[in-house]
Amino acid sequence: MSATVPRAASQSRLVRLGLDRSVLIAFACIVVLLAGGALYSREFLSPEYLLQQLQISAFLGVIASGAMLVILIGHIDLSIPWTVTLGAMMATAVAGWYGTPGEVLAIPVGILCGAIVGLVNGLGVAYLRLPSMIFTLGMNAVVQGLMVLHTGGSAPQDHATDAMHFLAVGRPVLGIPNALFMWILVGAGVIFLLNRTAFGRRVYAVGNRERAAYLSGVDTNAIIVGCFVLSGAAAAFAGVLLAGYSTKAYQAMGDSYLLPAIAAVVLGGTNVLGGRGNYLGTIAGVILITLLQSILAVMQMEEAGRQIIYGTVIIAMLLAYGRGDLHRK
Protein backbone atom coordinates (compact mmCIF):
# COMPACT_ATOMS: atom_id res chain seq x y z
CA MET A 1 0.00 0.00 0.00
CA SER A 2 2.78 2.45 0.89
CA ALA A 3 4.44 1.93 -2.51
CA THR A 4 1.17 2.41 -4.38
CA VAL A 5 0.33 5.82 -2.93
CA PRO A 6 3.60 7.56 -3.96
CA ARG A 7 3.32 6.00 -7.41
CA ALA A 8 -0.25 7.30 -7.80
CA ALA A 9 0.81 10.75 -6.61
CA SER A 10 3.69 10.76 -9.09
CA GLN A 11 1.36 9.80 -11.93
CA SER A 12 -1.06 12.55 -10.89
CA ARG A 13 1.71 15.15 -11.06
CA LEU A 14 2.74 13.95 -14.51
CA VAL A 15 -0.85 14.15 -15.73
CA ARG A 16 -1.24 17.72 -14.49
CA LEU A 17 1.99 18.72 -16.21
CA GLY A 18 0.69 17.31 -19.48
CA LEU A 19 3.18 14.45 -19.80
CA ASP A 20 0.72 11.78 -20.89
CA ARG A 21 0.00 9.85 -24.05
CA SER A 22 -3.19 11.67 -25.04
CA VAL A 23 -1.41 15.04 -25.23
CA LEU A 24 1.38 13.57 -27.35
CA ILE A 25 -1.17 12.02 -29.70
CA ALA A 26 -3.01 15.34 -30.02
CA PHE A 27 0.17 17.26 -30.87
CA ALA A 28 1.22 14.52 -33.30
CA CYS A 29 -2.13 14.90 -35.07
CA ILE A 30 -1.58 18.66 -35.27
CA VAL A 31 1.74 18.06 -37.03
CA VAL A 32 0.05 15.62 -39.43
CA LEU A 33 -2.70 18.15 -40.22
CA LEU A 34 -0.16 20.90 -40.84
CA ALA A 35 1.83 18.64 -43.15
CA GLY A 36 -1.30 17.54 -45.00
CA GLY A 37 -2.49 21.12 -45.35
CA ALA A 38 0.91 22.19 -46.68
CA LEU A 39 0.68 19.51 -49.37
CA TYR A 40 -2.72 20.83 -50.42
CA SER A 41 -1.75 24.53 -50.36
CA ARG A 42 1.58 26.30 -49.87
CA GLU A 43 -0.17 29.12 -48.05
CA PHE A 44 -1.19 26.78 -45.24
CA LEU A 45 2.12 27.21 -43.39
CA SER A 46 2.46 30.93 -44.02
CA PRO A 47 2.83 33.04 -40.83
CA GLU A 48 -0.25 35.11 -41.65
CA TYR A 49 -2.44 32.05 -42.14
CA LEU A 50 -1.17 30.41 -38.94
CA LEU A 51 -1.81 33.62 -36.97
CA GLN A 52 -5.31 33.73 -38.38
CA GLN A 53 -5.92 30.16 -37.23
CA LEU A 54 -4.59 30.99 -33.76
CA GLN A 55 -6.92 33.98 -33.63
CA ILE A 56 -9.88 31.76 -34.47
CA SER A 57 -8.62 29.18 -31.97
CA ALA A 58 -8.61 31.81 -29.24
CA PHE A 59 -12.41 32.11 -29.16
CA LEU A 60 -12.82 28.35 -28.88
CA GLY A 61 -9.93 28.19 -26.41
CA VAL A 62 -11.57 30.63 -23.99
CA ILE A 63 -14.80 28.61 -24.07
CA ALA A 64 -12.94 25.31 -23.65
CA SER A 65 -11.12 26.73 -20.62
CA GLY A 66 -14.37 26.96 -18.69
CA ALA A 67 -15.79 23.75 -20.11
CA MET A 68 -12.69 21.87 -18.93
CA LEU A 69 -13.24 22.91 -15.30
CA VAL A 70 -16.77 21.53 -15.37
CA ILE A 71 -15.69 18.29 -17.04
CA LEU A 72 -12.91 17.85 -14.47
CA ILE A 73 -15.52 17.64 -11.69
CA GLY A 74 -17.44 15.00 -13.65
CA HIS A 75 -20.19 17.22 -15.04
CA ILE A 76 -20.96 18.93 -18.33
CA ASP A 77 -22.20 22.41 -19.29
CA LEU A 78 -24.66 22.38 -22.21
CA SER A 79 -25.69 25.99 -21.68
CA ILE A 80 -22.54 27.21 -23.44
CA PRO A 81 -24.18 28.15 -26.79
CA TRP A 82 -26.60 30.73 -25.47
CA THR A 83 -24.32 31.84 -22.66
CA VAL A 84 -21.92 32.90 -25.41
CA THR A 85 -24.78 34.73 -27.13
CA LEU A 86 -25.94 36.25 -23.84
CA GLY A 87 -22.52 37.72 -23.12
CA ALA A 88 -22.29 39.25 -26.58
CA MET A 89 -25.84 40.64 -26.64
CA MET A 90 -25.80 42.11 -23.16
CA ALA A 91 -22.40 43.73 -23.68
CA THR A 92 -23.50 45.40 -26.91
CA ALA A 93 -26.90 46.29 -25.43
CA VAL A 94 -25.39 48.05 -22.40
CA ALA A 95 -23.12 50.05 -24.68
CA GLY A 96 -26.11 51.04 -26.81
CA TRP A 97 -28.33 51.95 -23.87
CA TYR A 98 -25.96 54.05 -21.78
CA GLY A 99 -23.55 55.64 -24.25
CA THR A 100 -20.05 56.33 -22.95
CA PRO A 101 -20.62 54.90 -19.44
CA GLY A 102 -22.13 51.84 -21.09
CA GLU A 103 -19.04 51.33 -23.22
CA VAL A 104 -16.95 51.19 -20.05
CA LEU A 105 -19.31 48.71 -18.41
CA ALA A 106 -20.09 46.64 -21.52
CA ILE A 107 -17.43 43.94 -21.15
CA PRO A 108 -17.79 43.47 -17.35
CA VAL A 109 -21.59 43.30 -17.66
CA GLY A 110 -21.37 40.71 -20.43
CA ILE A 111 -19.04 38.52 -18.34
CA LEU A 112 -21.19 39.02 -15.22
CA CYS A 113 -24.30 37.82 -17.07
CA GLY A 114 -22.47 34.63 -18.03
CA ALA A 115 -21.31 34.15 -14.44
CA ILE A 116 -24.91 34.46 -13.25
CA VAL A 117 -26.00 31.72 -15.64
CA GLY A 118 -23.12 29.59 -14.31
CA LEU A 119 -24.19 30.34 -10.74
CA VAL A 120 -27.73 29.11 -11.43
CA ASN A 121 -26.31 26.01 -13.13
CA GLY A 122 -24.02 25.33 -10.18
CA LEU A 123 -26.75 25.77 -7.59
CA GLY A 124 -29.07 23.43 -9.49
CA VAL A 125 -26.43 20.74 -9.88
CA ALA A 126 -24.79 21.05 -6.45
CA TYR A 127 -27.72 21.67 -4.11
CA LEU A 128 -30.73 20.32 -6.00
CA ARG A 129 -28.67 17.33 -7.19
CA LEU A 130 -30.12 17.54 -10.70
CA PRO A 131 -28.19 15.94 -13.59
CA SER A 132 -25.91 18.57 -15.09
CA MET A 133 -26.69 17.48 -18.64
CA ILE A 134 -30.43 18.04 -18.19
CA PHE A 135 -30.26 21.14 -16.00
CA THR A 136 -27.77 23.04 -18.16
CA LEU A 137 -29.66 22.10 -21.31
CA GLY A 138 -32.77 23.58 -19.72
CA MET A 139 -30.86 26.72 -18.77
CA ASN A 140 -29.68 27.01 -22.35
CA ALA A 141 -33.32 27.04 -23.48
CA VAL A 142 -34.25 29.61 -20.81
CA VAL A 143 -31.44 31.96 -21.84
CA GLN A 144 -32.39 31.51 -25.49
CA GLY A 145 -35.97 32.52 -24.70
CA LEU A 146 -34.80 35.57 -22.73
CA MET A 147 -32.58 36.70 -25.59
CA VAL A 148 -35.38 36.27 -28.13
CA LEU A 149 -37.60 38.44 -25.91
CA HIS A 150 -34.76 40.94 -25.54
CA THR A 151 -34.27 41.31 -29.29
CA GLY A 152 -37.82 40.70 -30.48
CA GLY A 153 -36.66 37.63 -32.39
CA SER A 154 -34.33 39.52 -34.69
CA ALA A 155 -30.66 40.42 -34.64
CA PRO A 156 -29.93 43.29 -32.21
CA GLN A 157 -28.98 46.61 -33.71
CA ASP A 158 -26.37 47.50 -31.10
CA HIS A 159 -22.79 47.31 -32.35
CA ALA A 160 -19.68 46.19 -30.51
CA THR A 161 -17.67 48.85 -28.72
CA ASP A 162 -14.22 49.93 -29.84
CA ALA A 163 -12.72 48.13 -26.84
CA MET A 164 -14.44 44.86 -27.78
CA HIS A 165 -13.27 45.22 -31.37
CA PHE A 166 -9.72 45.98 -30.22
CA LEU A 167 -9.55 42.95 -27.94
CA ALA A 168 -10.78 40.67 -30.71
CA VAL A 169 -8.94 41.87 -33.82
CA GLY A 170 -6.31 44.39 -32.74
CA ARG A 171 -2.65 43.53 -33.43
CA PRO A 172 -0.53 46.17 -31.72
CA VAL A 173 2.28 43.82 -30.59
CA LEU A 174 4.37 42.21 -33.37
CA GLY A 175 1.25 41.64 -35.44
CA ILE A 176 -0.06 39.05 -32.96
CA PRO A 177 -3.88 39.14 -32.54
CA ASN A 178 -5.08 40.46 -29.21
CA ALA A 179 -7.58 37.59 -29.07
CA LEU A 180 -4.62 35.24 -28.71
CA PHE A 181 -3.32 37.27 -25.76
CA MET A 182 -6.78 37.04 -24.18
CA TRP A 183 -6.68 33.26 -24.49
CA ILE A 184 -3.17 33.21 -23.02
CA LEU A 185 -4.36 35.23 -20.02
CA VAL A 186 -7.38 32.98 -19.48
CA GLY A 187 -5.26 29.85 -19.94
CA ALA A 188 -2.60 31.09 -17.52
CA GLY A 189 -5.33 31.72 -14.98
CA VAL A 190 -6.71 28.20 -15.37
CA ILE A 191 -3.25 26.64 -15.14
CA PHE A 192 -2.48 28.59 -11.97
CA LEU A 193 -5.87 27.74 -10.50
CA LEU A 194 -5.54 24.01 -11.15
CA ASN A 195 -1.89 23.56 -10.20
CA ARG A 196 -1.12 26.20 -7.57
CA THR A 197 -4.26 26.61 -5.49
CA ALA A 198 -6.27 24.59 -2.99
CA PHE A 199 -9.31 25.10 -5.22
CA GLY A 200 -7.56 23.30 -8.07
CA ARG A 201 -6.58 20.35 -5.90
CA ARG A 202 -10.16 20.09 -4.72
CA VAL A 203 -11.44 20.17 -8.30
CA TYR A 204 -9.44 17.02 -9.05
CA ALA A 205 -10.54 15.46 -5.75
CA VAL A 206 -14.23 16.08 -6.47
CA GLY A 207 -13.83 14.72 -9.97
CA ASN A 208 -12.12 11.57 -8.77
CA ARG A 209 -14.64 10.74 -6.06
CA GLU A 210 -17.00 13.39 -4.76
CA ARG A 211 -18.15 11.44 -1.70
CA ALA A 212 -14.58 10.78 -0.57
CA ALA A 213 -13.71 14.46 -1.05
CA TYR A 214 -16.73 15.46 1.04
CA LEU A 215 -15.79 13.05 3.83
CA SER A 216 -12.27 14.49 3.85
CA GLY A 217 -13.65 17.95 4.60
CA VAL A 218 -13.94 19.49 1.11
CA ASP A 219 -16.95 21.74 0.52
CA THR A 220 -17.87 19.89 -2.67
CA ASN A 221 -20.92 22.05 -3.37
CA ALA A 222 -18.80 25.20 -3.37
CA ILE A 223 -16.33 23.60 -5.79
CA ILE A 224 -19.13 22.56 -8.16
CA VAL A 225 -20.73 26.02 -8.07
CA GLY A 226 -17.35 27.70 -8.58
CA CYS A 227 -16.54 25.62 -11.66
CA PHE A 228 -19.91 26.35 -13.25
CA VAL A 229 -19.56 30.08 -12.52
CA LEU A 230 -16.13 30.13 -14.19
CA SER A 231 -17.49 28.17 -17.16
CA GLY A 232 -20.33 30.67 -17.63
CA ALA A 233 -17.99 33.65 -17.29
CA ALA A 234 -15.55 32.16 -19.83
CA ALA A 235 -18.34 31.45 -22.33
CA ALA A 236 -19.71 34.98 -21.97
CA PHE A 237 -16.23 36.49 -22.36
CA ALA A 238 -15.80 34.50 -25.56
CA GLY A 239 -19.13 35.93 -26.70
CA VAL A 240 -17.84 39.44 -26.02
CA LEU A 241 -14.75 38.71 -28.12
CA LEU A 242 -16.84 37.20 -30.92
CA ALA A 243 -19.05 40.29 -30.95
CA GLY A 244 -15.93 42.41 -31.28
CA TYR A 245 -14.66 40.15 -34.07
CA SER A 246 -17.88 40.45 -36.09
CA THR A 247 -18.56 44.05 -34.87
CA LYS A 248 -22.00 43.06 -33.52
CA ALA A 249 -23.92 40.39 -31.63
CA TYR A 250 -26.40 38.14 -33.40
CA GLN A 251 -28.82 35.32 -32.66
CA ALA A 252 -27.40 31.84 -32.00
CA MET A 253 -23.80 33.00 -32.41
CA GLY A 254 -22.64 30.40 -29.88
CA ASP A 255 -24.42 27.38 -31.34
CA SER A 256 -21.42 26.21 -33.35
CA TYR A 257 -19.11 26.15 -30.31
CA LEU A 258 -20.68 23.54 -28.02
CA LEU A 259 -19.46 20.32 -29.64
CA PRO A 260 -16.02 21.71 -30.62
CA ALA A 261 -15.41 22.99 -27.07
CA ILE A 262 -16.28 19.67 -25.43
CA ALA A 263 -14.44 17.72 -28.14
CA ALA A 264 -11.32 19.86 -27.68
CA VAL A 265 -11.28 19.17 -23.93
CA VAL A 266 -11.82 15.43 -24.36
CA LEU A 267 -9.39 15.09 -27.26
CA GLY A 268 -6.84 16.82 -25.07
CA GLY A 269 -7.01 13.90 -22.66
CA THR A 270 -9.38 15.19 -19.97
CA ASN A 271 -11.37 12.28 -18.56
CA VAL A 272 -15.05 12.70 -19.42
CA LEU A 273 -15.88 11.23 -16.01
CA GLY A 274 -13.75 13.83 -14.21
CA GLY A 275 -10.66 13.85 -12.03
CA ARG A 276 -8.02 13.63 -14.75
CA GLY A 277 -6.76 16.14 -17.29
CA ASN A 278 -4.46 19.08 -17.91
CA TYR A 279 -4.67 22.37 -19.73
CA LEU A 280 -1.83 21.62 -22.14
CA GLY A 281 -4.00 18.88 -23.59
CA THR A 282 -6.91 21.30 -23.96
CA ILE A 283 -4.66 23.70 -25.88
CA ALA A 284 -3.70 20.87 -28.24
CA GLY A 285 -7.34 19.87 -28.62
CA VAL A 286 -8.43 23.41 -29.48
CA ILE A 287 -5.72 23.84 -32.12
CA LEU A 288 -6.46 20.39 -33.53
CA ILE A 289 -10.18 21.11 -33.89
CA THR A 290 -9.53 24.51 -35.48
CA LEU A 291 -7.04 23.13 -38.01
CA LEU A 292 -9.37 20.28 -38.92
CA GLN A 293 -12.23 22.71 -39.54
CA SER A 294 -9.92 24.96 -41.56
CA ILE A 295 -8.62 22.14 -43.78
CA LEU A 296 -12.14 20.93 -44.53
CA ALA A 297 -13.18 24.49 -45.40
CA VAL A 298 -10.14 25.06 -47.66
CA MET A 299 -10.91 21.81 -49.48
CA GLN A 300 -14.41 23.22 -50.16
CA MET A 301 -15.96 19.96 -49.04
CA GLU A 302 -19.72 19.78 -48.73
CA GLU A 303 -21.18 20.06 -45.24
CA ALA A 304 -22.22 16.40 -45.11
CA GLY A 305 -18.69 15.30 -45.93
CA ARG A 306 -17.24 17.68 -43.35
CA GLN A 307 -19.43 16.27 -40.61
CA ILE A 308 -18.52 12.68 -41.53
CA ILE A 309 -14.77 13.37 -41.48
CA TYR A 310 -15.05 15.58 -38.39
CA GLY A 311 -16.86 12.88 -36.42
CA THR A 312 -14.62 10.09 -37.72
CA VAL A 313 -11.45 11.88 -36.60
CA ILE A 314 -12.87 12.49 -33.12
CA ILE A 315 -13.91 8.84 -32.72
CA ALA A 316 -10.56 7.61 -34.07
CA MET A 317 -8.61 9.74 -31.60
CA LEU A 318 -10.75 8.61 -28.70
CA LEU A 319 -10.07 5.01 -29.69
CA ALA A 320 -6.35 5.81 -29.99
CA TYR A 321 -6.30 7.01 -26.38
CA GLY A 322 -7.73 3.70 -25.24
CA ARG A 323 -10.77 3.03 -23.10
CA GLY A 324 -8.60 2.55 -20.03
CA ASP A 325 -7.31 6.13 -20.22
CA LEU A 326 -10.74 7.65 -20.74
CA HIS A 327 -12.57 5.69 -18.07
CA ARG A 328 -9.89 5.34 -15.39
CA LYS A 329 -10.98 6.88 -12.11
Score class of each variant (00 low, 15 high):
98 Y>D: 10
143 V>C: 03
98 Y>N: 09
98 Y>T: 02
183 W>L: 15
107 I>H: 09
106 A>L: 07
177 P>F: 07
127 Y>A: 03
165 H>N: 09
121 N>V: 10
179 A>E: 04
173 V>M: 13
180 L>D: 01
100 T>C: 08
194 L>T: 05
120 V>T: 00
116 I>Y: 00
175 G>F: 08
107 I>F: 13
116 I>E: 03
170 G>C: 06
169 V>R: 15
97 W>V: 05
187 G>H: 02
183 W>F: 15
105 L>T: 02
190 V>T: 06
194 L>N: 06
198 A>V: 07
88 A>Q: 01
155 A>F: 12
121 N>R: 05
192 F>V: 14
105 L>H: 02
119 L>C: 04
115 A>T: 00
114 G>E: 06
110 G>L: 07
90 M>I: 09
176 I>V: 15
126 A>F: 08
196 R>C: 10
163 A>E: 14
171 R>I: 07
104 V>F: 06
114 G>R: 10
87 G>M: 12
103 E>F: 01
181 F>K: 01
166 F>W: 14
158 D>T: 10
180 L>E: 05
102 G>D: 08
191 I>S: 05
138 G>S: 05
91 A>T: 10
159 H>S: 05
141 A>Y: 10
203 V>T: 06
93 A>N: 01
196 R>W: 14
148 V>H: 13
121 N>D: 08
158 D>G: 03
